[in-house]
Amino acid sequence: MNEFGSRVSRILEENLIFVSLIAIVIFFSLISESFLSLTTLSTLLNQLPALTVVSIGMTLVLISGGIDLSVGSVVALSAGVIGAGIAILGLPLPLAACLGILTGALIGFANGSLGAYLRLPIFIVTLGMLEVSRGLAYLVTDSQTVYLGAKIQSFAVPWAGSGISASILVALTLVVVFEFLLRSTVFGRQIVAVGSNESAAEVSGIDPRRVRCTVLVLSGLLAGLGGLMNAAYLGSADPNAGIGLELSAIAAAVIGGTSLMGGRGSVVGAFVGVLIVSVLQIGLAQIGITEPTKRVITGAVIILAVILDRWRAT
């Protein structure tokens, strides 16, 4: 019996964030009758895709020992490029979408070249790029929200009856793909190695600059995709989109067990982190908590997650 108990506690401990997520869901279902409903689920899922894909990229960057503060602005820039491409240049949607994603990758490449190859502090480089991208987003949209209509929204609108949109399906697939990349490929191991001990990685024949640069390109690319998802969700390209998104992504990654010092983390964990924050937002709103109080609680949860993580690691 005792042995059984210790095994249960170990399993609970190892899957702490899943347990926390379930606990939060149960908590809100008990308090608010309307919480466990299809409407809630649909609202939740529709909000998620952009933050999910951005968090994937952020998680990889954090594991490699870096950080990417530019992603929120890149979401807006990518959406802006897509909007301008369709509304001004009259490009077909798929081409405009590719252009938007490519823009994100280019910003990521700039981050990577400056941070990894020129060895500038990545925090400052991406902070600068946050401003550059936001400015570019205003420039390409002429500071106006560009309406794109129903065609792009079909990407984000749930398929009849299922509550699942193409957007969320893509995001979930990417969570699985990148978790696989991280856990089970040579490149994933290299990311972890560089983040955990850069000079040991170099002695092991890994080029830390290449790895750091590649994850930043991936992060930019995923933020570009996030821009497409954001534009699809809103049906328009909003140059004010994604403000503060980088902080939500960092929070999701950290709640999911990713270390800000690098070398440790999980993409699935980050996704659960996204779910925890989103469920909390919706749940608190439903039980009538005001916006300021919601922010206080969400912030406290992030700090609590780090405390739990520290406690678990020792």
Binding site: R189, V192, A193, S196, S199, A200, V203, S204, G263, R264
Partner: peptide
Amino acid sequence: KDGVFRDHALAFNVTIA
């Protein structure tokens, strides 16, 4: 400093190169 990955498994450390 530039040998082990201390927080990772023995297997990780042996196969990394």
